[in-house]
């Protein structure tokens, strides 16, 4: 299938993520990504869609430098991820915020501590933490629940905590891996509205999702993967079904 490309020329000057001829094969031999070329500019909102096994998760792991490419070139915020040294990875990751489908909160710590945890990792002072955490909790609508433990929160609320944790360090890029996968439609929309708001404030947002309704409604850039290949990259795209 030919790649549908409706974007108007490559945006280079403000490019924040670059993948050139990136391939990734696992030790089992199955190629997860094949010859992928992708360019994302600062401040963009991009959906990465595709069915199971299409390579979405591999792409996110490559962007996080959890995996390394088998061949090709990948750069995020000027960091060449195929060559970056292990000790430089923490500094690189501090530019990213990450949200997972299963929230990945620390169950033994309350909402405040889960968010403050991210600030402690980048060694913010107690004074800054006391200022920043309530402020971000207010943005995600959880100011009143800062003492609650994750198990006392609904799925939507837990995802908001995860979002607050991802945002409190003011990342340049927010990666959301199936952020609505465990949420009902109402909560899914609330999370997406928050992501849109975050994007409007200048953060580059990349959302990996299966949610057809949201993708079609939001009219954002949509990159579609199928069996490790980008089959479509549309400026105001929609969800493409596999058939």
């Amino acid at each position: 299938m030919a790649v549908k490309k409706k974007r108007k020329g490559p945006v280079v000057a403000n490019e924040i993520i670059t993948l050139t001829n990136v391939s990734k094969a696992y030790s089992t031999g199955a190629p997860a990504l094949k010859d992928v070329n992708l360019h994302i500019s600062r401040g963009e909102f991009v959906f990465i869609v595709g069915d199971s096994g299409s390579g979405k998760s591999t792409l996110i792991k490559l962007l996080l430098r959890e995996l390394t490419v088998t061949s090709g070139y990948i750069s995020v915020m000027g960091y060449d991820l195929s060559k970056i040294k292990h000790r430089k990875i923490p500094k690189f990751r501090r530019n990213l915020g990450i949200v997972f489908q299963d929230f990945r909160l620390l169950k033994d710590r309350n909402v405040y501590e889960n968010v403050a945890f991210a600030q402690r990792i980048i060694q913010k002072s107690n004074k800054e933490i006391k200022k920043n955490v309530p402020s971000i909790l207010a943005i995600v609508g959880l100011a009143g629940k800062y003492k609650a433990k994750p198990r006392q929160l609904s799925g939507g609320e837990q995802q908001r905590v995860a979002l607050a944790r991802a945002l409190v360090n003011q990342p340049t890029i927010l990666l959301a891996d199936e952020p609505t996968g465990n949420l009902d439609p109402k909560n899914s929309w609330e999370i997406m509205k928050l992501l849109e708001q975050i994007n409007e404030n200048g953060t580059t947002v990349i959302v990996v999702t299966h949610n057809r309704e949201i993708v079609n409604a939001m009219q954002k850039r949509v990159v579609t993967l199928r069996r490790g290949v980008i089959i479509s990259d549309e400026e105001k795209g929609g969800y493409i079904d596999e058939d």
């Binding site: 996080l64 923490p90 990792i121």
Partner: peptide, 10 residues
């Protein structure tokens, strides 16, 4: 894993 994703040093 969470600590490493957020950018914690070893």
């Amino acid at each position: 894993n969470i600590m490493k994703y957020i950018g914690a040093t070893d």
